[in-house]
Design a protein around this nucleic acid. Structure first.
Length: 582
DNA sequence: ATAGGGTTAG
């Protein structure tokens, strides 16, 4: 129905309804009228009119009308209004027939999908028992979804127990939501796995719930492993399962796997939903192939804000800030409304490419032109932008003027800038303050550095000084050779970033054993000459590794693509795409 | 009427 027809129908039926006598004997007509009205109700004003009408016609104890009222309210984000009417004392509470499971399910569903009211869903789940209404098999997916949103394991177990008690735990939908719910509850994954393993017939939904659960927790290897198991079991993935496994693949930086997944989609004719395309864009960008991501983006027939943001963030990560910014401008020209995440993307693009004025412009425009209130992340981007550009003083002033309390991330980007700019005293002062106010921050320095590399469909992970690999001997010989060759080419070790209190020779040795050098040696040993090497670091690349990798790319004539915690470095012929600005 | 999904500063 188009808008004007809808409005006319609305007017017509309203006129008719108001002519009905109160407590009309023609209950069916009154009921039908109300249901039709609710069906075409699109505004809150209409809803309150219908409310009045329901009372006038004495339909406040008609379950059919009440349920429709609840679901319409839910669509209009007004479930609170509906539930306070439905369960108000003026409604006849003694009439138990008034409420049925369908009505409660509608209310529970509405609250479960409303962001801030998951607890309300559980409240109504309890309320249904006090009214003597028993849950049915449709009740549990809604309640479990609310539990997933709350993320409380004990609550989840309680509802699980309840579902068992009423015999709904063998329902496929209930089981699948149960898996999802447990995956969303901190320590619950193992419980999810138990439900998953005990399910007699696992469909694609169950697999995606479990794979997605692992992926969200950063247990990407397990996610990919489970996807492989799924293929062995002969279950064909659908687009949602693909999104789940792709997010794990993206996390691992496993480009070969990503390409294989792309061909899997083609082979199995999986529908290319917007979400799936977005996941592919993100994967290609974060596995080192932004151009491929751009190509996919251009081919998409319809895009969402997430598609734009993914490709903007992707370009930014590769240091292609100008392209990212111009894409953002195109997006605005095409009247796609940016959201807060899109602004984080464009601001970080400015930051990584030193576009200070542009950054200021976007930051100011987000509130002025788009009514988006900047969050701590946006302030963080601005501080980072100023800090990286060497404007440490301006960054500090910005922090002092911001209306939000700065967090550790913000302080750390200033400290990093201080080190880079030789403002050691200032950096130290801030560091000391930070340690005093947030003693926990030390834990951040204790994450061990590791580097991953994909080779022949296998992921290899190395930590500093790693000797666990069976090629270890050759790897260390290769590293010695690398060291000799790059020194000859002019490489000088940068030992200033080594924090340990040891002498220079040992410091050099410590650098020499950094995980990314091990991974590069491993790659040089196992890949064909002239082919690109791709590695993924879990931390920011250190200055010495950055310098060494530049030399390695030249001496061994290899393109080396490094993804670190924040961004990409493309090393080629002795130079890096970040132009030493990272 | 019911289940699983994408982008986020360093």
């Amino acid at each position: 129905m188009n808008h004007s027809i809808r409005t006319n129908v609305w007017r017509g039926i309203t006129t008719l309804a108001l002519q009905l006598p109160s407590y009309t004997s023609e209950r069916r007509l009154a009921e039908q009228t109300c249901l039709t009205l609710l069906h075409s109700c699109t505004t809150l004003t209409n809803l309150t009119q219908i409310h009045t009408l329901i009372l006038k016609l004495g339909l406040h104890n008609n379950p059919l009308v009440l349920t429709k009222f609840a679901s319409t309210s839910s669509l209009l984000n007004a479930i609170h209004y509906a539930s306070s009417f439905l369960f108000s004392p003026s409604n006849n509470h003694n009439d138990l027939l008034l409420y049925d499971a369908f009505l409660f399910n509608t209310v529970i569903r509405a609250y479960a999908q409303t962001h801030a009211s998951k607890f309300k869903a559980l409240e109504f789940y309890k309320t249904m028992f006090t009214y003597g209404v028993l849950p049915n098999k449709f009740t549990y997916p809604f309640v479990l979804k609310a539990c997933a949103g709350i993320g409380d394991l004990n609550l989840g177990k309680l509802v699980h127990g309840s579902a068992v008690k009423f015999g709904f735990d063998d329902d496929r939908h209930v089981q699948n939501t149960m898996i999802h719910m447990y995956c969303c509850c901190g320590e619950g994954v193992e419980f999810a796995r138990k439900v998953f393993d005990e399910s007699p017939k696992m469909d694609s939904v169950a697999w995606s719930a479990m794979i997605g659960g692992y992926a969200r927790l950063g247990r990407s290897m397990e996610a990919v492993g489970l996807f492989r198991e799924m293929q062995v079991k002969g279950v064909i993935a659908d687009d949602v399962a693909m999104v789940c496994v792709l997010s794990a693949c993206t996390d691992l930086g496993a480009l070969e796997l990503g390409k294989w997944l792309e061909s899997y989609v083609e082979r199995n004719k999986i529908s290319k939903s917007v979400e799936l395309c977005n996941a592919f864009i993100d994967m290609f960008a974060k596995c080192g192939e932004v151009d491929k991501a751009m190509k996919l983006f251009r081919q998409m027939s319809s895009r969402t804000i997430v598609s734009w943001t993914s490709v903007i963030v992707g370009l930014a990560m590769h240091g292609r800030g100008l392209e990212a910014v111009s894409l953002f401008d195109t997006m605005i020209e095409q009247r796609v409304a940016p959201d807060d995440v899109a602004f984080i993307g464009v601001l970080s693009a400015c930051s990584h490419s030193g576009l200070v004025d542009k950054g200021h412009y976007y930051f100011n425009s987000m509130q002025k032109n788009f009514g988006i209130v900047p969050k701590i992340e946006h302030y963080g981007c601005m501080v980072d932008l100023l800090s990286r550009a060497g404007l440490v003083k301006e960054a500090l002033e910005f922090v002092q003027k911001m209306p939000i309390k700065p967090n550790q991330i913000i302080w750390r980007s200033i400290i990093t800038a201080c080190h880079a700019r030789g403002e050691l005293k200032l950096g130290e002062t801030i560091s000391k303050k930070l340690i005093r106010s947030e003693p926990m921050h030390e834990s951040n320095y204790k994450i061990p550095g590791s580097t991953m590399i994909e080779l022949n469909n296998e992921m290899y992970e190395f930590v500093a000084g790693d000797k666990s690999h069976n090629q270890s001997k050759q790897i260390y010989e290769m590293m010695d050779e690398m060291g000799r060759k790059i020194k000859k080419a002019g490489y000088l070790p940068t030992t200033s970033q080594v924090l340990l209190d040891i002498d220079d020779e040992d410091k050099e040795d410590a650098l020499h054993r950094h995980s990314e050098k091990i991974a590069i040696a491993f790659a040089l040993l196992n890949t064909a000459p002239g082919t690109p090497i791709r590695i993924v670091k879990n931390l920011r690349v250190c200055e010495d590794c950055h310098s060494a990798t530049k030399f390695i790319s030249k001496v061994y004539n290899r393109e080396i693509v490094v993804r670190d915690r924040n961004r990409f470095h493309h090393f080629k012929n002795g130079l890096c795409s970040c132009r030493d600005f990272w």
